[in-house]
């Protein structure tokens, strides 16, 4: 997935160097996707779109998808900012340790990580047994096959992206600016809110956009940890293709998801342009 920033793309060489990749992309990606999306209007009308955007059930799925994506983004930011900040400002040794822990999940298959969460979060999972043995709760907490489980799993998968972008933004800050603020009498609290946050807004913004957009199309984690009870739009599309074999409707839903994703990007481009240069 690219961040589609579009900066620094105008080079004198033009498009020639990109031709092989463009050719490959058209054959293995753009053409099949176009063919698939074409199913949605094969009947010669927009009935499937009317259904996707008109029926309350499906609007509900779309709304839930956005809500879960927003929550995932929020939790990733709340957890990722301190972590990225810490890695960016600590000693080189601890930065390396931090990086290993952040990147390790990124190198592990999503499927493996999701199954691992099922082991941890189930009714008789590791976490519930620990809590019951410790006497914290008397009956198992519902952590799996609901929104909680999906949120935990998705935040875990997407957190590294946020951490890396925040890390980059904090590293780009001139340490003298922080020293200047300290010397002028700013408390840690003020330095964080008045200096770090506004000057790392780029990283925060980019991290949120990436995590939100990736969340919108998430499939494996909601499918497994949601246990069929949390329906995000990608899960719905898969059901249409595999269970009801309704390809035209799946295509219409996919087009809606794609449009929503592009819209988020467009908004991000529009509002993310003004940036303070450090």
């Amino acid at each position: 997935m690219s961040t589609a920033h579009g900066r620094g793309m105008s080079r004198s060489a033009g498009f020639t160097p990109a031709l092989p990749a463009l050719f490959l992309l058209s054959v293995v990606f753009i053409l099949p996707v176009a063919r698939f999306l074409g199913f949605s209007v094969e009947a010669g009308n927009f009935d499937w779109y009317a259904q996707a955007l008109g029926k309350e059930l499906y609007l509900r799925v779309l709304w839930d998808t956005f809500e879960i994506a927003a929550l995932v983004t929020l939790f990733c930011l709340l957890l990722g900012y301190p972590l990225g900040f810490l890695i960016a400002t600590t000693t080189p040794f601890w930065a390396t340790v931090g990086f290993v822990f952040v990147l390790l999940p990124l190198w592990t298959s999503v499927l493996v990580r999701t199954y691992a969460w099922m082991v941890l979060l189930g009714r008789n999972g590791v976490l519930n047994r620990l809590l019951i043995d410790a006497g914290v709760v008397t009956s198992p907490l519902p952590l799996l096959h609901n929104v909680t489980g999906v949120l935990i799993g998705m935040v875990h998968v997407l957190l590294p992206y946020m951490v890396l972008l925040i890390y980059g933004a904090v590293r780009r800050l001139d340490p003298a600016i922080i020293q200047a603020a300290q010397g002028l009498g700013a408390s840690t609290w003020h330095i964080f809110w008045r200096i770090y946050v506004p000057l790392t807004m780029n990283g925060i913004f980019a991290g949120c956009v990436i995590v939100f957009v990736l969340s919108l199309g998430f499939f494996i984690t909601p499918a497994l940890l949601g246990g069929g009870r949390v329906i995000m739009i990608a899960v719905l599309i898969e059901q249409q293709v595999r269970e009801t074999l309704n390809w035209p409707f799946a295509a219409a839903l996919s087009a809606v998801l794609l449009a929503a994703t592009l819209l988020v990007y467009a908004l991000a481009q529009r509002f993310g342009r003004e940036e303070p240069a450090s």
């Binding site: 600016i177 020293q179 200047a180 300290q182 010397g183 002028l184 408390s187 000057l199 303070p276 240069a277």
Partner: peptide, 18 residues
């Protein structure tokens, strides 16, 4: 540093860019 009441001009000024 915050409690010292010392004004400092840095080599590259370190103005707050935002």
């Amino acid at each position: 540093p915050a409690k010292r009441d010392i004004g400092m001009v840095f080599q590259h000024y370190a103005l707050f860019p935002h």
